[in-house]
Amino acid sequence: MSEIVIYTIVTVSAIGILAAIILYFAAKKFHVVEDPRIDDIEEALPSANCGGCGYPGCRNFAEACVKAENLADLFCPVGGNDVMKDVAGILGQEAIEKAAQVAVIRCSGSFEYRPRTNNYDGAVNCTVAANLYSGDTGCQYGCLGLGECVDACTFDAMYMDEKTGLPVVIQDQCTACGDCVRACPKDIIELRNQGKKDRRIFVSCINEDKGGVAKKNCSVACIGCTKCEKVCNYDAIKIENFLAYIDFTKCVLCRKCIAVCPTDAIHETNFPLRRIKSPVEKKTVVKEKAVVTDNPDLVNIAKKKQESNDNEAESKDKE
């Protein structure tokens, strides 16, 4: 009996020593000389691997930082200025401050404002729908409401509002990584500066149709009337192709444009209530008015979406 035990111990130890020797030489032979700063930087990064910086993962970004001569073109949107300061510290460079940004949905065409003109019945995927046709409303620029941006978001910072059929960004969770911007086939989502006290003013529409056509298809569309452009004292608003765009680097948040917009296409966020007719209040009123659609198709789409999400979760679990 004791013989067996001894043999076993000897054999196992021999195998162990042999393996250790092999591993030692393998480690020597395949050793890769790497800048230790890459590891340091990687540690400083948020490890979200979201791709928001333009690199596939945090390590690739760290490598790029070490290689780059200066950090001007490199920015981790998730970590923000704090993390970039750390990275710059590791590399002994000057950090370049960037304004914090947030994703903004530039479409307000909810079920109520933008009547459906047909029922979409294909795969629940915005790009599939966009490749097929202009969408289930008269507006060929607007949100398709199938939630590809929500699926793309790695930070759970977006959800679909079932009452409006539009995605909503939860600002506190949004890291401005830009995944949703890339996911949207209609280029509706834009990264804009967060602004002082999170106050922002933007045109919530990208419809380039002529005013009459746009208005017919969606009652909150920008009709390109140029009123906002004229009222703006800071040259922040430009109208191109019947569509106004507010340059967030020039806008001083004076809110003059909001007052003159005939279709409420310009939105403001996080401003205190000022007038009775302020759009913020209007918006809340609207939200109360908006009822869950009784259109079964839309409910179905929402359901399908839910199901496919479930399935996805499962398949991920499986992997």
Binding site: G122, A123, N125, T127, N131
Partner: peptide, 12 residues
């Protein structure tokens, strides 16, 4: 399953 929908997307 919307097989062709996604294959078309992949093709594009």
């Amino acid at each position: 399953r919307p097989l062709l929908d996604y294959i078309r997307l992949g093709k594009a």
